[in-house]
Amino acid sequence: MDNIAFLIYSFSTLFAIVSPVSGVVTFVSLTSEMTLDEKNALANKSVILAFIIAVFFAISGEVILDFFGISIDSLRVAGGILLFTVAFDMMLAKVSRESITEKEINKSMERSDIWIFPIALPLLTGPGTITTVIVLMGSAASVIQGLEVFVAISLTFVIALVLFHFSRRIYKLLGYTGMLVFTRLMGLLLAAMAVNFIATGLWNIYTSFQ
């Protein structure tokens, strides 16, 4: 895969799993009682923290895998299965159980640190996002492609920040139905990427025994 194709692949994969447009619905519900300034300040803190978490695992992911003796292909297969379950929930227009449950959303309404939990973690950087950045870094064939993963992470969270800042306008424009349609489309795209993760991982594991 050349550098441009890898950048597009990395960004599209991360954008699909983070799915900031779908996250707007949850973000709006959690910040409905806040003023505009309070909402934007919370958006800044939550997206920055999510970005830091993603970058941390992108840098340290290989070390963590080596420590536990896990191959990148094993993570591809496990991560692909996880991403497919997330995609299945998205195609049914449901809040993914991998990210956050309805019960957690309701309980979070009473807490003051919702920018940490559940918005930064796990809404924006859940297990699926963490797995994806580690796999993408493991898939990078050169230093340039490794840097492109960081570019893809940055682009994804910059878009998330903009969407959260304009979340109320976007929600009014698209409406709940529009959000559900977008969520289903992202779910379909993510399901295809999950199958690719699983197929690539299984094939590499099989060839390693040849």
Rank of each mutant, 00 (worst) to 15 (best):
residue 51 F to D: 04
residue 177 T to K: 09
residue 8 I to F: 08
residue 104 E to M: 10
residue 183 T to A: 08
residue 166 F to L: 08
residue 34 M to W: 00
residue 136 L to V: 08
residue 6 F to S: 08
residue 24 V to T: 09
residue 92 L to V: 01
residue 143 V to R: 12
residue 35 T to P: 00
residue 67 F to D: 05
residue 100 I to G: 03
residue 98 E to Q: 15
residue 141 A to F: 10
residue 126 G to S: 09
residue 166 F to R: 09
residue 64 I to L: 10
residue 50 A to F: 04
residue 156 T to W: 07
residue 204 N to L: 07
residue 2 D to S: 15
residue 76 R to K: 12
residue 150 F to G: 09
residue 139 S to Q: 13
residue 13 T to C: 06
residue 126 G to D: 04
residue 112 S to I: 06
residue 24 V to E: 02
residue 62 E to P: 06
residue 176 Y to H: 11
residue 47 V to L: 10
residue 2 D to A: 15
residue 92 L to N: 11
residue 25 V to H: 10
residue 46 S to T: 15
residue 155 L to P: 02
residue 195 V to C: 02
residue 192 A to G: 13
residue 140 A to E: 08
residue 128 G to I: 11
residue 177 T to E: 08
residue 142 S to E: 14
residue 210 Q to G: 12
residue 113 D to Y: 10
residue 82 L to N: 05
residue 14 L to V: 00
residue 75 L to S: 02
residue 39 K to Q: 05
residue 162 V to R: 09
residue 65 L to R: 06
residue 194 A to P: 03
residue 87 A to L: 06
residue 193 M to K: 14
residue 198 I to P: 02
residue 181 V to G: 03
residue 15 F to N: 02
residue 37 D to G: 00
residue 106 N to T: 14
residue 133 V to G: 04
residue 52 I to S: 13
residue 98 E to L: 15
residue 32 S to V: 11
residue 41 A to F: 01
residue 18 V to G: 01
residue 50 A to P: 02
residue 26 T to K: 08
residue 161 L to M: 09
residue 198 I to W: 04
residue 50 A to R: 08
residue 99 S to G: 10
residue 101 T to V: 15
residue 65 L to S: 03
residue 110 E to S: 12
residue 73 D to N: 15
residue 3 N to V: 15
residue 127 P to G: 09
residue 157 F to E: 00
residue 163 L to R: 04
residue 173 L to N: 07
residue 172 K to V: 03
residue 67 F to I: 10
residue 85 T to A: 12
residue 180 L to R: 11
residue 113 D to G: 05
residue 120 A to G: 02
residue 55 V to R: 07
residue 85 T to S: 12
residue 68 F to E: 04
residue 82 L to G: 05
residue 207 T to F: 12
residue 140 A to I: 06
residue 61 G to M: 01
residue 33 E to M: 06
residue 107 K to W: 11
residue 121 L to I: 14
residue 57 F to C: 05
residue 129 T to I: 04
residue 69 G to T: 07
residue 160 A to H: 07
residue 195 V to G: 00
residue 117 F to D: 02
residue 22 S to L: 12
residue 131 T to C: 12
residue 69 G to S: 04
residue 121 L to K: 06
residue 98 E to N: 10
residue 3 N to K: 15
residue 95 V to Q: 15
residue 117 F to G: 05
residue 26 T to I: 13
residue 184 R to T: 03
residue 90 M to D: 02
residue 74 S to G: 11
residue 113 D to S: 09
residue 178 G to I: 14
residue 19 S to Y: 09
residue 53 I to D: 02
residue 72 I to K: 13
residue 101 T to F: 14
residue 103 K to V: 13
residue 114 I to F: 06
residue 187 G to H: 04
residue 4 I to W: 14
residue 145 Q to N: 14
residue 196 N to Q: 15
residue 49 L to H: 03
residue 135 V to M: 13
residue 126 G to I: 06
residue 208 S to P: 13
residue 36 L to Y: 02
residue 36 L to W: 01
residue 116 I to F: 15
residue 39 K to L: 03
residue 204 N to E: 10
residue 138 G to F: 10
residue 56 F to K: 08
residue 171 Y to N: 10
residue 26 T to W: 09
residue 178 G to T: 11
residue 134 I to W: 05
residue 50 A to Q: 05
residue 89 D to V: 05
residue 14 L to F: 01
residue 120 A to L: 08
residue 164 F to M: 05
residue 137 M to C: 06
residue 75 L to Q: 03
